[in-house]
Computed example of a mutant assay.
Amino acid sequence: MSADWLRPLGTTGLTVSAVCAGGGPLGSMPGNFGYDVPAQRGIDTVKRVLDGPISFLDTSNSYSGGESERRIGAALAQAGGLPEGFVLATKVDRDPSGDFSGPRVRRSIEESLERLGLSGVPLLYLHDPEHIPFEDGMAKGGPVEELLRIRDEGIAAHIGVAGGPVALMERYVRTGAFEALITHNRWTLLDRSADALLDAAVDQGVAVVNAAVFGGGILATGSAGSTRYAYREAHPEVLDALRGMEQACARHGVPLAAAALQFSIRDERVASTVVGFSRPERVDECVAQARLPIPEALWPELDALVPSGDRWLY
């Protein structure tokens, strides 16, 4: 791989690949992705990741009720553990009742470690804190304080925050508590909501991990394959922009999916870009898309087609 394939993850001291394997589809999430993933295929996909050039894998306690972590754990057991230098990240989540207290954060990581077959993880995120008030998240005895305690105990080497609404994510980034940020669906060819958030993270020395660059699939399949962006029906203006981008990519001989992926990879503020995998061959396809030469002239054409800001997620 080229020298810029491996990158520093902010100030953590960790080195990660430009593409991070996303564990969302691994456990089978048909409600989000529209298809089932058999258990063995999920395990085989993780094994392919562990054997290839991607050295960063992201999952969560809540993905498919823990099934993503179980399949990753099975693959790790077969591989004899995490390869040297490989960065595995998971996330602490609310329980099904909505509890996101400090004690719940502790239970969440304990559940994850049992599924993964590990005693600790290199990176642990607070996941989707938009479900509780910011003040509750930062309260004494609350989830952030417990996450910091987990890091201090060495169970997680580094901690981050992962979520949606950009204004809220910036509040968390600016607390100084976190070393990494995941933003999703908000820094893509079709949605630029996270621009200021990325600047804030860089300003705070927080590593940026950009997820869902295909907007839930539409920027991978194109307009013929989907009418949904970020797991909901897309506005007609967004679909019109997508069709224009497809045409621009076709003129330059570039697959839309490669442009969508490299839009994120080429941004110097982004340490790694999360792509969800559900089959082994997709790992190699994605690496090829990441390395495909793209004419510089394509980027301003795509920028000119971005939907108006009132269509972005924020």
Score class of each variant (00 low, 15 high):
189 L>G: 03
188 T>R: 07
187 W>G: 03
169 M>N: 09
113 L>V: 01
123 L>E: 14
115 R>P: 00
124 L>V: 05
174 R>I: 02
139 A>D: 03
139 A>L: 03
169 M>K: 05
154 G>S: 06
142 G>A: 09
152 D>W: 03
175 T>L: 05
142 G>L: 08
116 L>S: 02
188 T>D: 10
135 E>Y: 02
124 L>I: 03
151 R>H: 09
126 L>M: 13
169 M>H: 05
187 W>S: 10
125 Y>E: 11
127 H>C: 03
129 P>S: 05
115 R>K: 13
176 G>M: 13
128 D>M: 06
126 L>P: 02
110 E>F: 07
145 E>W: 13
183 T>H: 14
124 L>P: 02
151 R>E: 13
180 A>C: 14
184 H>N: 13
157 A>T: 04
117 G>Y: 10
199 D>S: 02
184 H>D: 13
193 S>G: 06
141 G>L: 10
199 D>G: 02
133 P>N: 03
183 T>R: 10
153 E>C: 01
184 H>G: 11
147 L>N: 11
145 E>N: 10
194 A>D: 06
187 W>T: 01
181 L>F: 13
131 H>A: 02
166 V>C: 13
194 A>C: 06
131 H>D: 11
109 I>Y: 12
163 G>Y: 12
176 G>D: 12
191 D>K: 03
110 E>M: 09
118 L>I: 05
120 G>C: 01
138 M>T: 09
179 E>C: 05
154 G>P: 00
155 I>P: 06
154 G>F: 04
182 I>Q: 13
190 L>Q: 02
188 T>L: 06
122 P>K: 13
161 V>K: 12
111 E>G: 11
156 A>M: 07
133 P>W: 01
200 A>L: 07
185 N>A: 15
121 V>T: 09
160 G>Q: 14
117 G>D: 05
123 L>D: 11
170 E>G: 08
187 W>R: 09
176 G>R: 11
167 A>R: 14
118 L>H: 06
200 A>H: 04
173 V>H: 09
130 E>Q: 12
182 I>T: 08
136 D>V: 04
177 A>T: 00
145 E>C: 03
174 R>V: 02
168 L>N: 01
177 A>N: 12
185 N>D: 15
120 G>T: 01
183 T>Y: 08
